[in-house]
Design a protein around this nucleic acid. Sequence first.
DNA 1: AGAAATAATTGGAACGTTCCAACACGCGAG
DNA 2: CTCGCGTGTTGGAACGTTCCAATTATTTCT
Lengths: 333, 333
Amino acid sequence: MKHPTILDVAEKAGVSKSLVSLVMRDSDRVSAASRKAVLEAAASLGYRPNAAARTMVRQRSYVVGVLVSNLHNPFFADLIDGIDVAAIDAGYRSILTTGNRELERERLAVSTLLEMRVDGLILVSPALQSDDAIEASRSVPTVVVGKTTRAPTVDSVANDDRLGAALVVDHLVELGHRRIAHIDGGIGAGSRPRRTGYERSMRRHGLENEIQSVKGGFTEEGGNAGIRTLLARRPRPTAIFVANDLAAIAVLEVLDTEGLRVPQDVSVVGYDNTAMSASHRLGLTTVDQPRHDMGRMAAELVIARIDHDRHTANHVVLSPKLVVRETTGPPID
Amino acid sequence: MKHPTILDVAEKAGVSKSLVSLVMRDSDRVSAASRKAVLEAAASLGYRPNAAARTMVRQRSYVVGVLVSNLHNPFFADLIDGIDVAAIDAGYRSILTTGNRELERERLAVSTLLEMRVDGLILVSPALQSDDAIEASRSVPTVVVGKTTRAPTVDSVANDDRLGAALVVDHLVELGHRRIAHIDGGIGAGSRPRRTGYERSMRRHGLENEIQSVKGGFTEEGGNAGIRTLLARRPRPTAIFVANDLAAIAVLEVLDTEGLRVPQDVSVVGYDNTAMSASHRLGLTTVDQPRHDMGRMAAELVIARIDHDRHTANHVVLSPKLVVRETTGPPID
DNA sequence: AGAAATAATTGGAACGTTCCAACACGCGAG
DNA sequence: CTCGCGTGTTGGAACGTTCCAATTATTTCT
């Protein structure tokens, strides 16, 4: 249970600690014989380098820390995978912490990462305010994913929510809809631009009088609340653009219980293209974000900042794509 | 960008490094005046303790490391939350790594944690063989979640899959089914006991001749493959017990496309009670595992082993509960 | 063969903390 | 006035690595 050290290995192999260190980092200036001896000794003792000690002397951990706001949203899995892959490619490792959407726990999670001296920090759709991100960025390169920020010390990666919203409105208008409502994402990351994108696009189509944004949220409850509000109104909208898939699915359920057919009576669109939305039973029309790429970009940005310390902020905006499925169709008036 | 150390704080506050250390760990034997001076100095410098250095000298990191096999399955979110909460309660922190179901990456992820000198290791439904778990448990207390293991050095937390399967069969038999088939989980954690639980239970009901287990998997593809096999057979089963919800949902879709009504033509049952299965549109009958508790238990086990090193293995088995929804009903023969 | 160059190996210092034994100070008791 | 005691405070050693300059062993060249 007690971890062997480099000195134990050195003794067993009959060489100096320095040589063991050299072998561990596989330097090319050790003789084949010594290398073999060291490797054997290490294996027989079950030696594992101590990252804490290494971090101390190198003043670098070669770890990027990732804070994930919400593991429940399947949206993040691919994103994290993208981060992980890019990190490994660049010779880094990634570790995650989560705050389960609670502010204090998120703060604690960031502290944990910072105290461990991660070389870079990636905040994935944090509930944390951007002040906290800026604060963190003073001690380590930081990038925020899913939220744009104007801070000059923090990079960001996000999809173009305004464009995504426009794609949705264009699609619905093309089908012949005019009374297109929006259930927003509340305070969550990306909610604002999706709403303004919707409103702007409606105006562009000359539908400023049909604009109807109601309060929702990025959760099932949010979708629920939003659709209840809308169903109470007359005339009813013929199409609804919901802030994300999770909420959109809740909307579909309510419509179902209320006996409204989709898309004949109402068309519904989500956002995120989660695996669920692709399900044949749901067939939700939605907007796809390049999740994996977003993760990869985030890791690359943070690592670039670590490796050659850049001092201007980088804000990457990726383009979303509309995915048309069965929940949208022409209105029947 | 350069991290201030305890010495910087000491100098600024006009005291010794030892005193700063005392304040940081808030000892009660420092005068109010010194405490204030130190705290102010620390705040103004933006000092953060260096966990690597602390870990070195204390020979303890107060961190438990968690390997998550698959972030895509929403099942794990609550589990991880349970771990995190319990860890914090006990004065520890938790960090995650993931291997995205790939063996080599899982191994790397475990190495990362071990090198960081986590005090305990939790493997959540790992793809890794139990050899790897045993290997890890030689250097640090280890618990496996979602899989039972017979290794004496590794603790485990799992639900009683056999019982869960029995509940399903009992329910279906009570509804009047006899031709009950099973699509298994392939090589995944928990697959075996669910299958044997099903078979045993069928025998208990005198239905040994109706036993039909086909190969599947814990994924959508698995469910797909399984149901295709079953649909080709005659007479068709009137009820199908699928290894988990993810696969069960895929099964529902295929049945839908094939024009078979659920539950009139076929009843379907899943396992896990993921949020998706509760959805009104799906209404999947399934088996609930106490996810949050399982996470909490796992953390408590590992921390108990750290704090007073126990040397007998602990295997916790929690009871699952049947959740009846709309995908099961009496057979119509 | 001897010098020079190259290859392989080495010990000590440093990284930022905690722990421990020792010290300084003031105060009440003898 | 000295002793002992409790309360705050202190410096040095230690943790397990990497880095560097120094040392030794080996090869190459003339």
